[in-house]
Amino acid sequence: MKLDTNTINKIAKLARIRLSEDEAKDLLKDMNSILDWVEQLNEVNTDSVEPLANISSSTLPQRKDEAKDINSSDEILKNSPDKLEDYFVVPKVVE
């Protein structure tokens, strides 16, 4: 058992996902079995192995830092669930 209810609630808070008690219980079981299963990687000796982050065989290209006008604010705002003039609307943050 790697995770307990407290840890899972802490992770859920970090990920901004609210879990019901039942959901947390379910996920706890699944996640513990997944984490136990991935434990087998410890059998592999990885001393002096470089981590592989980017499989792309070419090095990442550089480009000129030029401004491009590809999105209008209308387009950006088009899918917003709540907007006012040129702004996204969210619940009040500052009293």
Partner: peptide
């Protein structure tokens, strides 16, 4: 609440594993 109601079980499971 948006993420809790908007994502399904498998997606939540993977987000939480990934966060961990």
């Amino acid at each position: 609440l948006t993420r809790s109601e908007g994502f399904g079980k498998e997606v939540k499971r993977r987000i939480l594993i990934g966060t961990y």
